[in-house]
Design a protein around this nucleic acid. Structure first.
Length: 864
RNA sequence: GCGAGAGUGGCGGAAUUGGCAGACGCGCUGGACUUAGGAUCCAGUGGGUAACACCGUGGGGGUUCGAGUCCCUUCUCUCGCACCA
């Protein structure tokens, strides 16, 4: 019937090799005739889905606005990068979100459910280098296509709120925030060693380096020295940590643990060691000030600035230089792995132990991290395994200062460092103290002599946001020969990314070649100046898009405060676990910044977080190289959006990985076909939908219906378990099929029709197209999204009869049906009358009976 | 090494508070309808047995009338962190 009718998406070769019954498939003349004949009764998703999508759009069904009379609910899914087409991960993420959004709306909440595009980023640039298409054109074309795909899935987005981060009208506000942060000292420029990906030709934040490799392309990361812009996220370390308390009820524990570890708060002391023969100090952070009397040398990271200056005049210059160069060339991941051989070089200088006066040789050591603490470590070989190995290798002095109970260690004979607790020895006035007490005492002593203090150290580093790339938001700063580096005037914003650029992929920022962009006027002295040509990390854009959604196309402002106050925070955020640290930490930080700048009233953006699992196929993540990619578009063409949605929800609970199965989706397609036929057959029967007068013959159906309402509501609302909700509805369908065959009069049919209506309402968040269609078939009016969610009738949801398991000595011997809440004597009598129970009670006498009402009766017997 | 999570039929998964293990679906087996069935419907489907018995939630131990669920121990897998001073 519909050979000419195509779904709006084009699919190559979808018919061939199809195992199921492809909707609208036209193999030969006969099948066309057959389909024409069956037109009214066959489930044909492509036709009805596009029909309803059009209707929803025509009626602006998904449009939402502030409504003070209603409670709001902000449901957000992580927006996609417009790579070209949606993949199964998107489908899963957005289907989960859509179910919740539609459900919440039906329960009467005012639901904000927006979508947009994380549109800046490297793939656009790479595509331009490879194919000669301008990143802007490439990106906007991808957006257009993916938007059609998302609409074809039936997702309930209010597209009037669409955010595209590469729009000037979006990133201009980011430039304003940048300047305001600069004014508050939250932005600074620093020269430092940074992770450089030679393949992506860009700098990476620490968070973007995984196992020493680029998080995006997987190539080896190198260290390069660079001038970079930083956001001072470290000023918010404690707040980011403290606020985790607020998120405990709404976020998965493991995400919070990951963030906690990433922030990495540890308490200890900061100690200053005087460098012998100079007036300079080396500062170290340590969590073990109690071991200070045993500190016999000093280790510096190769990147430490003193590595350059210390050896001067000692004769060690060349040796140190060679060692530093060699070490920095090694990849950092290997170099800092625990098993790596510890190596170092003497700088020729000494520093003084503030407690013992011991002249500690200063080494450069490959295992010391410049990123952590002060980049310098006081070495206590007796009580730190790393220092111990290092000391043995280079013949350095080992002094025991903590003795474990009942043992006497000595520096000469010990085979490994002792890192446990004990009493202090060789520790001057502190000798004899418990080492745990000595931590405080020694630090207080250092405070008195001006050599140290208590200190809280964080692992979290400042967020480097400069990227040597084209397709990003320009950093609104100029470099002036006279005034130095200064932010542009706010009135001069936006700094628009020039479009006429040559993309070569050489590592130079492409906009550096655009004279009209680079040459600027200094906002301070009005003299000639050069614009900053780096662009911002795209994680900046994704750190506030969810706030932007709150306002519909705001003019001359980033968003409207009254909109934000109404909608924020996000009530439920849904996305991949891969963003547990990066995106979610940055977004939390940025929200705090916007709070402190007075833009928003909240300081945590996401109340509840759901991290959905990956979609895998044949036990592996989908990837082109493995050839196990499932294209959603093909699935939509073959089975429809509803079946695709239903399967992604049914195959696994949302937080677990789900295994894609080509046979599995056939099952959900079959279920929908079955539902389709059920409705057709039932509407043919005489009898108006009713459940006021339930005939005795239909009481079980009425009960099952209300139990299903209860189950589905709880599964969605309380548990986020869509797979079990769907299973419950499948059970109801099975029951209704059986009931249909035994229905004899109109009142019986009426109960089934009523049940079917409840079912369609409940199915509508999951499979909205077929639900609306069948609702119409059954004579229902309007669209189900506007229909209130059903409430179960407690009187029907409760069982009247229950099945009780009868155990003899803990083993199941029978099941019996009894009235609900039956008393023990009645249940016992019935249990003992069972033949099998009798059999097992022969030759035995009762010792005890345990009865759990409505569940189980366990007869404990002893044989004689 | 540290932290978190997981391990249940041939497969995906269910069992929400310690109370009938395997809901629902896939697959498979048999049957019905049929020129045909890759459509649909009906029945069956953890192992075992003629039927019972019995055995079954990674392994071992424990608590309990009763354990997939709690405790101890051990193995395997996944994820995160990993020389963090």
């Amino acid at each position: 019937m519909n050979c000419k009718l195509k779904s709006p998406v084009q699919v190559g070769g979808s018919g061939a090799g199809s195992t199921g019954r492809p909707a609208g498939g036209c193999d030969n003349e006969a099948s066309i005739i057959e389909e024409e004949q069956q037109m009214s009764s066959d489930y044909n998703p492509s036709v009805l889905e596009t029909k309803w999508q059009k209707q929803w759009e025509d009626e602006k069904l998904f449009k939402v606005d502030i409504d003070q009379s209603k409670q709001k609910y902000y449901l957000l899914e992580m927006f996609p990068y417009p790579s070209g087409r949606i993949h199964m991960g998107h489908v899963r993420n957005y289907t989960i979100g859509d179910v919740v959004a539609r459900y919440k709306k039906m329960t009467g909440l005012n639901v904000l459910h927006p979508m947009g595009w994380d549109a800046f980023g490297m793939p656009a640039e790479n595509a331009a280098i490879a194919g000669g298409v301008h990143p802007k054109k490439w990106t906007y074309e991808n957006i257009e296509y993916m938007k059609i795909q998302l609409k074809r899935m039936g997702f309930s987005y209010d597209w009037d709120r669409e955010v595209t981060t590469c729009d000037v009208d979006y990133y201009r506000w980011e430039q304003l925030f940048f300047i305001q942060m600069y004014e508050k000292g939250l932005v600074y420029r620093d020269r430092c060693f940074l992770n450089w990906c030679d393949s992506c030709k860009t700098v990476l934040a620490n968070e973007q380096v995984e196992d020493g490799q680029c998080w995006r392309c997987g190539s080896q990361v190198l260290l390069k020295e660079y001038d970079q812009w930083f956001f001072k996220i470290t000023r918010y370390s404690q707040r980011l940590l403290d606020n985790i308390e607020k998120l405990k009820n709404g976020w998965p524990e493991r995400v919070l643990i990951m963030q906690k570890n990433w922030i990495g708060r540890s308490t200890g002391s900061l100690i200053r060691f005087a460098i012998d023969g100079t007036d300079k100090d080396i500062e170290v952070f340590t969590t073990r000030p109690d071991t200070l009397y045993g500190a016999t040398f000093m280790s510096l990271a190769p990147e430490h600035p003193l590595a350059k200056t210390l050896p001067e005049g000692t004769g060690q210059e060349l040796a140190v230089k060679a060692f530093v160069e060699k070490t920095l060339k090694e990849d950092k991941f290997t170099r800092t792995s625990e098993t790596y051989e510890k190596e170092g070089v003497f700088t020729g200088r000494y520093c003084i132990n503030p407690l013992t006066g011991y002249r500690m040789p200063i080494y450069i050591a490959n295992f010391v991290l410049y990123d952590y603490g002060t980049g310098a470590v006081m070495a206590v070989p007796s009580h730190d395994q790393r220092d111990f190995e290092f000391a043995r290798k280079y013949g350095l002095h080992i002094i025991v200062v903590i003795q474990p109970e009942g043992e006497t260690l000595s520096g000469e004979t010990m085979e490994e460092a002792f890192e446990g607790e004990g009493l202090l020895v060789n520790s001057g006035d502190h000798t004899g103290m418990k080492n745990t007490d000595a931590m405080k005492a020694i630090t207080e002593h250092l405070q008195k002599i001006g050599r140290g203090e208590f200190f809280v150290n964080f692992r979290l580093r400042d967020w480097g946001i400069s990227r040597q790339r084209y397709w990003g938001a320009p950093i609104p700063v100029v470099h002036c020969g006279k005034c130095g580096t200064v932010p542009v005037n706010k009135e001069d914003l936006p700094i628009i990314l020039p479009e006429d650029v040559k993309l070569t992929g050489t590592g130079e920022s492409p906009i550096a070649q655009v004279d009209s962009f680079v040459n600027a006027t200094c906002p301070v002295c009005k003299g000639p100046a050069k614009r900053e040509t780096d662009t911002m990390d795209t994680f900046v854009e994704s750190s506030w898009y969810f706030i932007r959604y709150c306002s519909i196309k705001p003019e001359n402002k980033p968003f409207d405060r009254k909109d934000v106050d109404y909608w924020m925070p996000v009530d439920q955020y849904i996305g991949g676990i891969e963003h547990a640290i990066l995106h979610l930490m940055y977004a939390r930080f940025y929200t705090m910044i916007l709070h402190d700048l007075g833009y928003v009233g909240i300081d945590e953006p996401f109340e509840h977080l759901l991290t959905q699992g990956m979609v895998i196929k044949d036990g592996a993540k989908m990837s082109k190289s493995k050839g196990n990619v499932v294209d959603p578009e093909v699935m939509i063409a073959r089975y429809g959006a509803d079946a695709t949605r239903l399967f992604t929800l049914f195959a696994a609970p949302p937080e677990k990985d789900m295994d894609w199965s080509d046979q599995g989706i056939e099952g959900t397609y079959r279920f929908l076909s079955r539902l389709w036929r059920l409705v057709q057959e039932i509407t043919d029967l005489e009898g108006a939908s009713q459940d006021e007068k339930v005939p005795a013959s239909m009481e079980d159906i009425q009960r099952k219906t209300h139990q299903t309402i209860r189950k589905v509501t709880e599964d969605i609302d309380r548990r986020f378990r869509f797979n079990t909700a769907i299973a419950a509805m499948m059970e109801l369908v099975n029951e209704l099929y059986k009931a249909k065959d035994r229905a004899r009069d109109e009142s019986e049919v009426g109960v089934i029709k009523k049940a079917l209506e409840y079912l369609l309402i409940m199915l509508s968040p999951f499979v909205p197209h077929i639900s609306d269609e069948l609702w119409e078939v059954m004579g229902g009016s309007g669209m189900l999204l506007l229909h209130p969610w059903p409430e179960y009738d407690a009187k029907w949801a409760e069982d009247v009869h229950v099945t009780i398991a009868v155990q003899v000595n803990g083993k199941l011997r029978a099941t019996i049906d009894v009235p609900k809440d039956a008393l023990q004597p009645e249940v016992e009598a019935k249990a003992f009358s069972d033949g099998n129970v009798k059999r097992f009670m022969e030759e035995a006498s009762i010792r005890k009976i345990i009865y759990v009402p409505n569940k189980i009766i366990n007869i404990i017997a002893v044989s004689h």
